[in-house]
Design a binder for these strands. Sequence first.
DNA 1: GATGAATGAGCATTCATTCAT
DNA 2: CATGAATGAATGCTCATTCAT
Lengths: 216, 216, 216, 216
Amino acid sequence: MSDQDLFDEELFEGEELTEKQKKILIAAIESFSEKGFAATSTNEIAKKAGVAEGTIFRHYKTKKELLLNIVSPVMAKLVAPFVIRDFDKVLNKRFDTFEEFLRAVFKNRHEFIEKNSQIIRILLQEIPFQPELREQFKEHVAAKLFERFTKAAAYYQEKGQLLEIPPASALRMTASSIIGYFIAKYVIFPESEWDDEVEMERTIQFILRGLGTETK
Amino acid sequence: MSDQDLFDEELFEGEELTEKQKKILIAAIESFSEKGFAATSTNEIAKKAGVAEGTIFRHYKTKKELLLNIVSPVMAKLVAPFVIRDFDKVLNKRFDTFEEFLRAVFKNRHEFIEKNSQIIRILLQEIPFQPELREQFKEHVAAKLFERFTKAAAYYQEKGQLLEIPPASALRMTASSIIGYFIAKYVIFPESEWDDEVEMERTIQFILRGLGTETK
Amino acid sequence: MSDQDLFDEELFEGEELTEKQKKILIAAIESFSEKGFAATSTNEIAKKAGVAEGTIFRHYKTKKELLLNIVSPVMAKLVAPFVIRDFDKVLNKRFDTFEEFLRAVFKNRHEFIEKNSQIIRILLQEIPFQPELREQFKEHVAAKLFERFTKAAAYYQEKGQLLEIPPASALRMTASSIIGYFIAKYVIFPESEWDDEVEMERTIQFILRGLGTETK
Amino acid sequence: MSDQDLFDEELFEGEELTEKQKKILIAAIESFSEKGFAATSTNEIAKKAGVAEGTIFRHYKTKKELLLNIVSPVMAKLVAPFVIRDFDKVLNKRFDTFEEFLRAVFKNRHEFIEKNSQIIRILLQEIPFQPELREQFKEHVAAKLFERFTKAAAYYQEKGQLLEIPPASALRMTASSIIGYFIAKYVIFPESEWDDEVEMERTIQFILRGLGTETK
DNA sequence: GATGAATGAGCATTCATTCAT
DNA sequence: CATGAATGAATGCTCATTCAT
C-alpha cells in the first residue's frame, strides 16, 4: 500500500493536486478496483478518504469524471515507450533483434503495470461499459500501439526475424500472451506462489517461437 | 437474436422453466451483458421481460441469485468436452497428435462461445466481484480444465510432441491465445471485418509453434 | 379543510386515484401553496401524506410532473363555462344583457376559485417559471377565454351595451378587476374582515360603468 | 441592458456600494427574476457576478438578506411620489381634478416600473413566501399608499368628482386596473406588439368612467 | 476585503425487495 | 402463480454557509 501511494503521487504529479484530492483519488482507486465502479458509492469514497462527500464533487463534477481522471493518465503512460519521437531510430539503435525488442517492452511495461495494477484492473473492467473510455483507449492506446508495432514488425520482418503475417495478427498474439501473463498473475492467482522471472521468460520464449523464424 | 433465443432455451433445458422464467432470463442476459450487473435494475429486466417485478423475485430470491442462475450452467458446459468419462481413452482414440487435440478443442469451444457470447461476457465481467462466481469457476472450470489438460499435456509430452514445460504454463499460454482471439473478436473489433477461419488458423499455428517440438 | 378535501376528490374524480395518491396530492397542494414549489421538498410531502418517499415517485415520475398533475385539471376546469358547445346560443338565451353575463361569470367562477384557491395560487406562482405550464395556460385557458369572450363582446357591442373597444382590451380590464378582487381577498387580506357580497357588487358595477354604454 | 444597469446604480446610490457589490446585486436581480429566488443558487450568482462565492456572504449574511437588500429600496421608492411632505397642498396645487391626479400617478409610476421591472417581478413572486417582505410591504407601501390615497379620495369626493365608495375599494379597483396593465404588458405579452399609449389611455378612461361621477 | 476549498445537511430520485390481493 | 403498489434505505449530487489564508 505504501508502494501504491508512492506511485499514485508520481502518476498524477503533473497535476498540482491538493492533499484532499490525492486522498480522494487513492480512496476511489482502492474502492473501484475492489468492488467495481458501479458498486462503489461516493459516500464510501468520501469516508475512506476522510473528506466530506461534497468535496469530491467540488473537484470532480460527477462520479464518472472521477473515474476518467483516474484512468486517463494511466492510459496515456501505458503506451509511453512507444510514443518516443523517432521511434524508428530508437528501434535501429537499441533493439537489433525482435527478441531484444520484445524483452525490453515486456520488462519495462511489467514494472509499469505492477505499479498501476489497481488502475489497470479498473480500466479493464470499465472499458466495456464506458464509451468515453473506449474512445480514449482506441485513440490513445490502441491506435498508437498498433502504429508503432506495425513499424517495428515491418522492420523485423525485413530483417527476416519475424514471421510474415499481418502485423495486426502478430500484435494480437503478442498482446494476448503478455496480457494473459498479467491476468494470471494479478487476477487468477493473486495470492499463489508464482515465479515471475521464470514465467516471464517462458512467455517470451513462447512468443518468439510462435512468431519468430529462427531455426533455433 | 433468434439464434440467441433458440440457444437460451437449449442451454437451460434441463431445468423445466416456465415461459415467464425464460423471458426473465433472456431479458436479464441482454441487460447484464450490455450495461453490467450492478448497473442493471430489476425494474428494467421486468419491463424487458414483460413480467411484473415481483415475478422475478418469486423465481430468484435475489438479484444476485438471478445472476448465478444465468452464469452457472454456462460455466458447467464450458468445460463439458473435458469432463467426459474416460477422458484418457478419448484422448488415445480420437486425437493422436497435439495439433489434432488443439484444433478440436478450439473449434468446438468456438461454437459454444459464439452461441453464449453474452453470458460469457457477463461471466468475465463479474468474476472479479462475485466471490461465489469465483469459487464456482475455480472448482468447476479451472480445476477440471487444469486436471484434464495436465493429463493431455503429459500424454503429448510423452509422445514428444509438446515442449517439456509445466502443464500450468502451457495451459496459461494456450488459454491466453485462445481467449485473446475471442476478446479481439467479440470485444475489441465486434463490428470489424475479421476473417474467422484465417485468424483461427493463425492462432492455432502460433500455439503449435510456441509449444510444439520442432520436428514438425 | 374538510371542504378543501371534499373538493379535491371531486376535482380529480375522473382519474381513478388510490387512497395514497389522493393523500399525496392533498399534501403537495398544501405545501406548494404555502411555501412554493421550489421550496417544498418531496420528503416533506411524503411525511405530510403519510407515505414513503418512494411512493410519490411511483405515481409521478418527477416532482415537476406532480406539479403539473395538480395544476392541469384546474386549468382545464377554470374555463369550463366558456367551453360549452353552442356558446353563442347559450349567450342568446341565458344572458340578455352584458350585466347578466358578467354577473353570471363572476359568481360562478367565484365559487370555483374559492374551492380551488390553493391550486390557483400555485398556478399563479409557478406560471412564470414553468414553460410547460405557460404553454398549457396559453393553449387551454387564455386562447379559449379570449375566443369566447371576443364572441360575447361582439354580441353585446352589437346590442349597444358594450363600449366599442377591442375585445382584448375589454377582456384585460374585466379580468384585471375580477382577478384583483380575488387577490385582494385571498392574498392581501386573507384574514381581514371583508364583505364578499358588497365588494363583488362594487366590482361588477365598476366594470359595468367602465365598459358599458351610458344609457343605463 | 445598459439602461437597466444605469438605473441599478441610481437605485442603490445612497448606499456607497463597492464595484463588487454592484455586480453581485445586478447578477442576483437577473437570476432571481429569471428563475425565482429559491431556484437560484448563490454559486450561480457568484459566477455571473465574477466574484467568489464567499464575497457574497461578506456583504450579505444570508441569501435572504440579499433578496431583501434588492427589493427594499424599490419598495421604498415605489411610493415615493405619495410620500412628499405636505401631500395635501401638493394635491391642491398640482392636480385639480381626479383625472389629472390619476394620469400623473399612472404616467410617473409607469416609468419607474419600466425601469425596475425585474425587481418588481421578484417582489411580486416572493411576497407570498417571505413574511419579512410582506411586513415591509404592508408597512411601507400598502399603508402609505392607502393613507395618501384616502386623503386624495376624500378630496375628490368632496369636489364631487369621485364616486362615494370607501377609499379602500376605490384603491383596490384603481390598483387592479393599473397593475393588470403592467402584468399584461410585462408578463403575459412580453414579446407582443402592444401600443403603450393607447392601452394606457384606455385604462385611464376605464377607471375614470368606473369611479368618476362625470356626466361625460 | 476577497478568496475558494471545505463542509455536511438536504435534495430528488432509484433501488431491491416485500406482501396483500 | 403472478401481480404491482408500497417501502425506506441508499444514491449521486447541490446547496448555503464557514473560515483559514
